[in-house]
Write a protein that binds this DNA or RNA. Structure first.
Lengths: 233, 233
DNA sequence: GTAATAAATTGATATATGTCAATTTATTTA
DNA sequence: TAAATAAATTGACATATATCAATTTATTAC
């Protein structure tokens, strides 16, 4: 039972798990967050937030891993990004209609802090550097969506899958060998293609020696070749 | 000569052409904007702002029409939206790296105000409701990109073209008959397909009586059928 | 550990879409 | 107005990609 709560910090002051963003708060503000947040642990596969519902809180991922995705037509989804500790998750709903415009589902057991939206906005109003850092964070998310829109609409399958793998390498795992948390289907949802096509592209990559896949581990063997495939499209 | 400057207001106070956003400024702030803005007229086809360059100003479209687009791989572009009077154009560069992350090109002769970025940010810091309206505006742009990402990656050509036409109808011209400012190539760039495919899809729409195209005018004859095609994908 | 279920893989096939080359139509330039 | 250029259109064809059905492999439940 102790182990269970190990990574679920009970107070914000001195917390090592919170998003960088919150480092810009002073102790008073942090105590206010503390008094208006709840920490929840999710099992892998559970829905952390659901597109379309009312946004009452913003999120901070303390531990674990999750996928953030848009639910589209006919039950299909597009994964926008993988969220990891200690990412902050706000979204365009905060200042538009106060709804969630994407869903987030845990890929691993995860600990997440839910911070009251009104309190968050109140602090934002009172703390300039916090507000600017929030905007910077939001803007970078937008840039990654721009990038995604381009590569998903202008490249063909090998280029899209290469970009997906490079994204995982560069931004999520930051090493060539990573435990394969994502299913083939989820790799397909990151790359805007069918599950079967994802399998076939990966098979090609493996055949050409760019990749090693065993059990639940994937290893990028030839990063430069992947980068070239990404460039060529 | 008088005619030339008709739609290029020289002062911000009392200006009817500026973005809604600026209505939240008081006279003092408006005078500050006034002293730090320049107004420029562009001919159709001219580049108003270029992706990759430094962002020194934010924009407000006084008159005319323009396309806002991402420059992608191999010279290809994806049009994100059409901008019309009196749209504000900021973008994710303001609070990230102060660069332009999309290009804007005039479709019609246009009058545009360039407002100094540092002054804009300064006013933003001092005026809460202005800041929140800016965030709302930005957030709605982000939502439209989410929407675009979904429809461009999950629908096939007829659905994508239908969405493009419905977008023009609902949000830009707001009437079934509109002068066709966009070339077939630009309709293709809005719908993530080749020029030839755009032509073929439009031909089908015309053959089925959904559309009338003559000279430089396009008329949507069957809005409901287009909406159905949009839904079916 | 076995059965049941879910995920991954495969090849065959159908379909969507892009590319190419030729032609027509529209627009600009001289 | 004619010539030159650009844009739109077309059909034939190649290619990319999805879908389907069958099979294998992995995972979960009992």
């Amino acid at each position: 039972m102790t182990e269970y709560f190990d990574k679920s910090p009970k107070q914000c002051v001195g917390c090592q798990c919170m998003s960088q963003l919150f480092c810009l708060l002073n102790e008073e503000e942090l105590l206010l967050v503390d008094a208006n947040k709840i920490n929840v642990r999710f099992n892998a596969g559970e829905t952390i937030k659901k597109q379309g519902t009312f946004m009452t809180h913003v999120l901070s991922i303390n531990s674990g891993l999750a996928k953030l995705y848009l639910e589209g037509v006919e039950g299909r989804s597009a994964i926008l990004r993988i969220v990891k500790p200690t990412n902050f998750i706000g979204g365009p709903g905060i200042y538009s209609d106060q709804r969630h415009h994407f869903s987030v589902t845990a890929l691993l057991d995860s600990s997440v802090c839910f911070i009251d939206l009104q309190i968050f906005k109140k602090i934002l109003r009172g703390n300039q550097s916090f507000a600017e850092e929030f905007l910077k964070d939001f803007s970078e998310d937008v840039l990654s969506v721009y990038n995604r829109l381009i590569y998903l609409t202008q490249k063909q399958m090998p280029g899209r899958m290469a970009d997906t793998l490079l994204y995982l390498h560069d931004e999520i795992f930051q090493q060539p060998k990573f435990s394969m948390i994502l299913s083939r289907f989820e790799l397909a949802e990151l790359s805007a293609m069918s599950r079967e096509s994802a399998v076939k592209v990966l098979r090609e990559f493996r055949k050409e020696g760019l990749l090693r896949i065993s059990d639940h581990e994937m290893e990028i063997l030839d990063l430069e070749a992947l980068q070239k495939i990404s460039r060529v499209g």
